[in-house]
């Protein structure tokens, strides 16, 4: 049921903190270390695996602001691909971290998830 399949956004492995146990499907030659302090929002043509690495880095640093941005980006990509369940999976993560921080993105994330019927109407 988890949104991990051939078209999945993220590669996941045993050390991943993301809630998915499907095997990794993306190339292994992606850079393990990414430059810090880059903007969380990635260019559209950035590889999904790069986004995944950024997520792992943000999780390791407990950088909730970056996690909100990165999961929002992931959600938008999946929306673009028409996979609404997967989109809502990532938007949910962004929403939870936004809720924790009372971040400015909270209202928009609530609205989007509510529009898909995925949270109780705020």
């Amino acid at each position: 049921m988890l949104p991990c399949n051939e078209s999945s956004l993220l590669s996941l492995n045993e050390s991943s903190v993301l809630p998915c146990s499907e095997p990794a499907v993306l190339p292994r030659n992606e850079p393990a270390e990414l430059p810090r302090n880059e903007p969380a929002e990635l260019p559209r043509n950035e590889k999904d695996s790069t986004l995944h690495q950024r997520m792992l880095q943000a999780h390791a640093a407990q950088d909730l602001n970056s996690l909100i941005a990165l999961y929002s980006t992931a959600g938008k990509r999946m929306e673009t691909r028409g996979d609404i369940d997967a989109a809502c999976f990532y938007l949910t993560h962004a929403y939870v971290y936004a809720l924790e921080l009372d971040a400015p993105e909270l209202t928009e994330l609530q609205t989007r998830l509510a529009a898909y019927g995925r949270i109780h109407t705020p």
Binding site: M1, L2, P3, P19, I84, D85, A86, A87, C88, F89, L91, T92, H93, Y95, V96, L113, R118, I119
Partner: peptide
């Protein structure tokens, strides 16, 4: 989060 399945909260 995900209480009703992935992405279903």
């Amino acid at each position: 989060p995900h209480v009703g399945g992935p992405g279903h909260n």
